[in-house]
């Protein structure tokens, strides 16, 4: 399989605080990579490096390189908006805009200059179908997205990301604010999406990582301790720290 992302010697500091230490990781095309580790270990910070979301935070310095499809996204003069257009992101808490369901999904297309009405309508439907939301909302597309349930909101947020056809999807603990049933639906969805997209998911929940991912990376206090196929990480980790975390000795 082709390499989608190639991270080498990535360091990130918040002021004096060294939040990510020398990270090296490669992510394969059309796979699900789960990032696990205790709170504050840097997994969310790391995932935000992949679409340069950390640029929004003051006093952040980053060095090292992140190659997306062979292109260094931290090189000078890169088009950041275009990068984010290509790399979709789903956040921890569902964050639909206070607009209608339709407008939420159409937003990414509109801000990227798509004007063709029927194209937008098709894309919205397609994305909602992909996220298994279509049947639930097809009659209320004009309804405010705020009125949806938490699980529906999160699936809407995923649909919103899919509508712009990203090449990669970042998910930052997408189910941590949801009930088990909604979580299960999202996990099924991830499974489906894997056929088309490269997915990186941060999760707190090891069962989730075990269920949905092909590769698992374990972070601990800003360092990437171990990466391997999920089955190996969960059955036969090489590092003791990983072992301890998996078996629940800290976390």
């Amino acid at each position: 399989m082709a390499k989608k992302v190639e991270v080498s010697n990535l360091n990130l500091r918040y002021g004096d605080f060294h939040a990510l230490k020398n990270i090296n990781l490669s992510i394969e095309e059309r796979s699900v990579t789960a990032l696990i580790g205790p709170s504050g270990c840097g997994k969310s910070t790391f995932i935000r490096c992949l679409n340069r979301m950390n640029d929004l935070v003051d006093h952040v310095t980053i060095d090292g390189s992140v190659l997306l499809e062979g292109e260094d996204i931290y090189r000078k003069g890169i088009d950041i908006d275009n990068l984010r257009y290509r790399v979709g992101m789903v956040f921890q808490k569902p964050n639909p805009f206070p607009k209608s369901i339709f407008e939420n999904v159409a937003y990414g297309l509109r801000v990227n200059g798509v004007k063709d009405k029927s194209f937008i309508e098709n894309k919205v439907r397609e994305s909602l179908v992909k996220t298994a939301l279509w049947d639930e909302v097809k009659d209320d597309l004009k309804k405010s997205a705020i009125d949806l349930s938490g699980g529906q909101q999160q699936r809407l947020c995923i649909a919103r990301s899919l509508a712009v056809e990203p090449t990669m999807l970042l998910m930052d603990e997408p189910t941590s604010a949801l009930d088990p049933i909604s979580t299960a639906k999202i996990e099924d969805l991830i499974f489906e999406l894997k056929k088309q997209y490269t997915i990186v998911i941060v999760t707190h929940n090891m069962q989730q990582a075990a269920r949905v991912s092909d590769v698992t990376a374990f972070f601990y206090i800003g360092e990437l301790i171990e990466t391997d196929t999920t089955s190996k990480i969960f059955t036969n980790p090489k590092q003791e720290k990983t072992q301890n975390y998996i078996t629940g000795r800290f976390g």
């Binding site: 679409n51 979301m53 929004l56 908006d81 275009n82 990068l83 984010r84 257009y85 290509r86 790399v87 979709g88 992101m89 956040f91 808490k93 964050n95 639909p96 805009f97 937003y107 990414g108 801000v111 990227n112 947020c157 919103r160 990301s161 712009v164």
Partner: peptide
């Protein structure tokens, strides 16, 4: 305006 909304918009490639 919540950061979450801004991030959602930026993550979709909006300027």
């Amino acid at each position: 305006t919540p950061l979450a909304l801004r991030e959602a918009s930026l993550a979709l490639g909006a300027t």
